[in-house]
Design a protein around this nucleic acid. Sequence first.
DNA 1: TATTGTCTTGACAAATTTTGTCAAATATAC
DNA 2: GTATATTTGACAAAATTTGTCAAGACAATA
Lengths: 97, 97
Amino acid sequence: MATQLGDKIRELRTKQNLLLRQVASKLDVDTSIISKMERGERPIKKEQVATLAEILNADKQELLTLWLADQVMDVIKDEQFADEALKSVTKKIKKGK
Amino acid sequence: MATQLGDKIRELRTKQNLLLRQVASKLDVDTSIISKMERGERPIKKEQVATLAEILNADKQELLTLWLADQVMDVIKDEQFADEALKSVTKKIKKGK
DNA sequence: TATTGTCTTGACAAATTTTGTCAAATATAC
DNA sequence: GTATATTTGACAAAATTTGTCAAGACAATA
């Protein structure tokens, strides 16, 4: 249930002594949503990742990569042939597309 | 837009001289749905893949892997950091999960 | 060209899922 | 204890997905 990006955001936020409420207002969502995002209970929108990077002074590219990894993980978790499918996709994107 | 699984299904179906209508009735969906599935215009449900394998005398595992690869591809297509995210996920599932 | 059979397309409403909002419950600090 | 911060769950609104259907396009054949 936990996500890489959620964990990272919580880590960044607490290290900077920011309250959920403070991040929430800047992101323009309810406090409960941020709480759930950090704990992987609610998905984080891609556009929100960029905003979060600004709020938390983090590297946008790094957060976006974590976000994408979470998306992929969500699809392959509990899947028997995950490794083979991942290999196939990796190969495919390496050539051009 | 095209999918690996859709292409495979069409290939299997036509090689066996089966009509959309025939596959549709066995799968219990409208003809138009199969048409769209084959061309990647409609997603294929995981449960349907198993049924399709039976109908088309194909290897269930192979089709399921194609299905999963399509799911992953759907998430990472157009993504700038796809390669890095895939690498990260691959590493993560290799150690136990 | 008309006819027949196959496949494709688009529109539509029903069903499902996702989303935000809110209040109450819980936890943490003082 | 009080006060502040976070979590939880319920709920309706909004958005997306789903199946159904009829009409259109296409191909072969007479």
